[in-house]
Write a protein that binds this DNA or RNA. Structure first.
Length: 578
RNA sequence: GCGCCGUUGGUCCAGUGGCAGGACAGUGGCUUCCCAAGCCACUAGCCCGGGUUCAAUUCCCGGACGGCGCACCA
């Protein structure tokens, strides 16, 4: 509790994040990142990009946030995001109206597709009762609730669209082109860092559940039969796992498995998921997540997404609660298959065989000059039926005549009019729909977790101190420069030092207000790992003090060597090693 | 969405049917000032709308926002 309210106060006061549009009363679920927060978020994204794009050799794209409706028809989001809600007049409980109807009316199992009007009628006709308190729900309005933000693309309402609820679809939709850039070779990965939107019913807990958020997603396209992750290098990585079994037993405890053990014991079902659980561990550590307050939790069967097979979440502990910061899903071929069905383009990759294969294939070439006059309107359908029959059961063509069914009717014709033949064909490969392994990171939740985990108080010379022990790599400011006093040229000299450090590419703050102690504390609060002070000795010997945030220790460094020294410190060197 | 509680300078709080207070922070000045020091000065606030009242930041109603619980969470 305190942990979070203290942080909310710090976040507002020091500019990490704050409720957006407060001058107009505020908007629930929308936050603005202030200067410190925007820098921290950007740095965390940079680490992610470094690891999951650059180091992994993957591609990164940027797709629009406004997406036409057809995409979400294919992806399944339109259906699964559109819930119908009925509220009980007695107890105020809200229920999924479509689920109530499905449970109460035996021959209805797709109520989700019904109009709200019809659902309301069904509720009234069957005099359904509130599952919570038993009061009648007849006559209660059925509200439609869609978690996607709707909009119109262009003037009028002829082209409905939605703000994307996940960045992933932007990658899936563009797969036909993306595969070209990957030279039509699996496996390859495409990443995207961007905004996504969900019209949450109840935004909660600062950055944890918001209506607009940043995702960092990697879609790793793999050949389901032949591609395997490089398990060997990560086989001994220890994973803190909270599996479905453990959750059912309500043990609450996390068990540590190596990647190898987890796979051998079947705790993690997918070797690809296991691989990314291991890979990501280093990432969380690098950005400053407290690994004592971190676990991987397996989704229970009931909470799996409409597209996912086995899914694990990375969770961080915040004030006694566990929150999801990453979802690791094996999405199989669901998304590409759906887009392949709904869209015009090819969502497959051609996989060449090692050796071309010779296969026998039954084909037909119906004599339409016979079928046309004979079967009239049905001729085309009969032709198609013959084609599928030949592929299915070539023995049907063994006799003199063959019979096919078209709808209710059946048609018989001489085999010689079907152009039936068995050909030998050489096939050099086949089209496969790639499977997708998806690590999907919630950047805002990571920022928030890092802030909570790194935020603490200690004591320096008997005074309580608040500090943010951020890793140097993600800290908004790497080094702050102060003149001991703003006189005798100390401030001019400090300005030169700051400029030199900026020229060296570092994120530098300059501060000459208040006294020196206050300035140190100020930097401690926003997580600046190093402070440089120009004092009277500087004027004599061109050295400055470098002070370390976590220990508050200092050492003197020559100004000429300062950029290099800071680099070495960021790289892990200690003050004594300078 | 429902219920309970809350909303006062940048932040955290006190308080009042009649000129609104403190602490911290911030800004300027003084002080050879290395860990929130001292002194002086300054800046800055009652969430919004309606009602009751001579008068509302205060009481009542509604809304927005926030916290918690329930529901929801692809």
């Amino acid at each position: 509790m305190t942990e979070r309210s203290d942080l909310a106060e710090l976040a507002k006061r020091r500019g990490f994040f704050f409720p957006a549009n407060e001058a107009y009363g505020g908007t629930a679920g929308l936050y603005t990142y202030g200067p410190e927060g925007a820098a921290l978020k950007r740095n965390i994204e940079a680490v992610w990009r470094d690891q999951f794009v650059r180091a992994a050799g993957h591609m990164e794209v940027e797709s629009p946030t406004v997406v036409p409706e057809a995409v979400f028809e294919a992806s399944g989001h339109l259906e699964t995001f559109d819930d119908m809600i009925v509220e009980c007049a007695e107890c105020g409980a809200t229920h999924r109206a479509d689920h109530l109807v499905e449970n109460a009316v035996p021959d209805v199992d797709d109520a989700e597709a019904f109009a709200p009007r019809r659902i309301a009628d069904l509720v009234a006709d069957h005099d359904m009762a509130c599952p919570s308190c038993g009061a009648s729900l007849a006559g209660r309005p059925v509200d439609e609730f869609n978690l996607m933000f709707g909009t119109n693309i262009g003037p009028g309402s002829s082209s409905p669209g939605y703000l994307r609820p996940e960045t992933a679809q932007g990658i899936f939709v563009e797969f036909p082109r993306l595969k070209e850039y990957a030279h039509n070779q699996l496996p390859f990965g495409v990443a995207q860092i961007g905004r996504a939107y969900r019209n949450e019913i109840a935004p909660r807990r600062a950055l944890v559940r918001v209506r607009e958020f940043t995702q960092a997603e990697l879609e790793h396209f793999v050949d389901p039969e032949f591609d395997e992750p490089p398990i060997a290098p990560v086989a001994d990585v220890e994973l803190p796992l909270y599996g479905a079994e453990a959750q059912r037993a309500d043990a609450g405890g996390t068990e540590t498995y190596t990647v190898r053990e987890a796979l051998d014991a079947g705790v993690v079902g997918s070797d690809w998921v296991a691989y990314y659980l291991a890979e990501s561990l280093a990432f969380y550590e690098r950005i400053g997540i407290d690994m004592e307050r971190f676990r991987y939790r397996q989704h229970l069967p009931g909470e799996l997404s409409h597209y996912a097979a086995d899914t694990w979440d990375a969770e961080t502990e915040l004030g006694g609660d566990w929150i999801e910061v990453t979802g690791f899903a094996y999405r199989s071929d669901y998304d590409l298959r759906k887009h392949g069905e709904y869209a015009e383009a090819e969502y497959t990759v051609f996989r060449q065989y090692d050796e071309p294969k010779t296969v026998e294939r039954a084909t037909v070439d119906p004599d339409m000059s016979y079928l046309g006059p004979t079967f009239g309107d049905a001729a085309a359908d009969v032709g198609e039926a013959l084609e599928s029959l030949a592929a299915r059961d070539r023995s049907a063509f063994d006799g003199d005549a063959v019979t096919v069914a078209v709808g209710e009717d059946s048609y018989t014709l001489p085999v010689e009019k079907t152009g039936f033949a068995v050909e030998e064909r050489t096939e050099s490969g086949e089209h496969v729909t790639p499977h997708v392994v998806e690590p999907s990171f919630g950047v805002g939740r990571l920022v928030y977790s890092v802030l909570v985990h790194r935020h603490g108080t200690d004591e320096v010379d008997g005074e309580e101190r608040t500090s943010l022990a951020l890793p140097a790599e993600v800290a908004p400011t790497t080094v702050a420069v102060f003149p001991l006093m703003t006189k005798d040229g100390l401030d001019d000299r400090a300005g030169e030092v700051a400029a030199a450090l900026r020229a060296a590419g570092l994120a530098v703050s300059y501060d000459d207000t208040g006294n020196i102690g206050r300035r140190y504390r100020r930097q401690d609060e926003v997580g600046t790992p190093y402070c440089v002070t120009v004092d009277y000795d500087t004027l004599e010997d061109d050295t400055v003090t470098v002070r370390e945030r976590d220990s508050t220790d200092q050492t003197r460094v020559a100004i000429d060597d300062l950029p290099g020294a800071i680099d070495r410190l960021v790289g892990g060197a200690t003050l004594a090693e300078l």
